[in-house]
């Protein structure tokens, strides 16, 4: 009986092949991506972003090896984000965390953001910050200012407004980093200076 239960448990853990991958990708690429997706599932990571990454590659005409590489890089980003944010992190936060890494942030910095805001979703704030990192905001300064903003309980909509304010200032001729500091100072008066 115990053996039978073991077999049932093993069979229950196996997932059906992902039909969207089989329908859109060549068989070798589909099987490889499915293996990556299974690996994510076993680790408790969200699988849908990985599937979507593969489908994005297909839509953009990328060859199979490049699709597999992209999905693997995303899996690594999700895994590192999970390590930094904790096993209970939401899928959105993990996806945003992977963006943070691609933009130059580190797992240690991401973990500090989690500590500064243990009870809220970080996705919007991290996504806004990741975009600013790619434009030249230094990751360490970003982390320290984000910690302050989180401790001041700045809302998601305020983070989006910060981005709008920065863009407006840059369009007006300001440099990015001073513009970010000015917006942070507007949200948390006296706290926008370089740490």
């Amino acid at each position: 009986m115990i053996g039978l239960l073991g077999v049932v448990a093993v069979l229950g853990g196996l997932q059906d092949p992902e039909p969207r991958l089989r329908a859109r990708l060549d068989s070798v690429t589909a099987r490889t991506v499915e293996a990556i997706v299974d690996s994510a599932r076993i680790r408790g990571l969200p699988t849908e972003p990985l599937i979507q990454k593969a489908l994005e590659g297909r839509a953009k005409g990328a060859p199979g090896p490049r699709i597999v590489a992209a999905v693997g890089i995303l899996l690594d980003g999700l895994r590192r984000a999970q390590s930094a944010l904790g096993p209970g992190a939401r899928g959105d936060d993990l996806l945003a965390g992977s963006l943070w890494f691609r933009a130059g942030g580190s797992p240690e910095q991401l973990g500090r953001l989690r500590l500064a805001a243990p009870d809220r979703s970080l996705a919007v704030a991290i996504a806004v910050s990741a975009e600013l990192l790619t434009r030249g905001w230094p990751p360490e300064e970003a982390t320290e200012l984000l910690e302050r903003l989180f401790r001041a309980r700045v809302s998601d909509s305020a983070f989006l407004a910060l981005r709008t304010g920065v863009n407006d200032a840059v369009r007006g001729g300001a440099s990015l980093v001073p513009a970010v500091r000015a917006e942070v100072a507007r949200l948390v008066p006296g706290k926008g200076q370089v740490p």
């Binding site: 990328a62 490049r66 590489a69 992209a70 691609r102 933009a103 996504a127 806004v128 990741a130 790619t134």
Partner: peptide, 9 residues
């Protein structure tokens, strides 16, 4: 919001 996509360009 935007994010660069170095994977697919």
């Amino acid at each position: 919001l935007t994010a660069p996509d170095p994977d697919f360009g």
